[in-house]
Simulated scan of single mutants.
Amino acid sequence: MSSQVEHTDVGAYALGLLEEADRRAFSAHLSGCPSCTAELAELSGTAAALVGIEPVEDEEDKGGDRAGEAPAQVIDLIRRKQAADRRARRRTFLLGAAAAVVLVGGGVTVGATISGGGAAPGGHHSAHGPAEEFYRQGKPIAGTGVSGVSGGLVLETKAWGTHAALELKGVRGPLECELVAVSKTGERRVVTGWAVPEKGYGVPGSPEPLYVHGGTAFSPGEIDRFEVSATGGGTLLTVDV
């Protein structure tokens, strides 16, 4: 292999796959190349994740020599991959290396992501779903229910119509329901639908309310009311707007 330095050799250098002459040449190159030095720092987590990974053995394989053969096959495959893709982008190369470990090893377990972390930086997980978040942040319009049913709606004007979030309590299942928008001319449009399990929502033993949301092409000015209807007949809640 030629000892000519390629910037894309940073991936092979991080994994220790360069031949000795190439390794020495690239090591000298690093002292005067800030970009390769920075890339090497970024790839250190990948190199650490791949070092020492071995196949997960089945009971029937214990005592055999597959565990000894697989790492050698992986290294050989990665070396040939590196030579063929010498001028490819470094990230493409490293993904290929990780894939080779999985394919040749027959299944491996890595306890962390390639970056060494868990959740993606900046990730956010809310304690509430989007329907509940929207409802809590708005100004609910209380509805009139039957047989202990209660709830309300939060409405939002959109260019395409109206966005609505519903809170519903006091219902037991099994039941299928729909939230229906009724216009001032009597036209009815289904906003969203759902199933109520036997334990129900907002009742003893299952105190959490149900939150759902959806949209209708009606503008708020066109709507007379919303109804929560049980499939097969019966209105559980009416919200006048």
Rank of each mutant, 00 (worst) to 15 (best):
V74L: 04
L77H: 01
I78Q: 09
K81R: 01
K81A: 08
Q82A: 09
A84L: 06
R87F: 05
A88C: 01
R89Y: 09
R90E: 03
R91G: 10
R91T: 10
F93M: 12
L95C: 04
G96T: 01
A98Q: 11
A100G: 03
A100F: 06
V101G: 03
V101Y: 15
V110N: 05
I114P: 06
S115C: 05
H124L: 08
H125V: 14
A127G: 12
E133M: 15
F134T: 01
G143P: 09
T144G: 10
G145W: 14
G145I: 14
S150H: 03
S150R: 12
G151Q: 11
T157W: 10
K158S: 14
T162E: 06
A164M: 07
A164V: 15
A165S: 15
R172Y: 07
P174M: 10
V180I: 15
A181F: 05
V182E: 05
S183Q: 01
K184A: 13
K184Q: 12
K184E: 09
T185M: 02
E187T: 15
R189T: 07
V190G: 00
T192C: 13
T192K: 03
P197E: 12
P197D: 12
P197R: 13
P197T: 12
E198G: 02
E198I: 08
G202Q: 01
G205H: 10
P207S: 14
E208A: 07
Y211C: 11
H213L: 09
H213E: 15
H213G: 07
G214I: 06
G214V: 02
T216K: 09
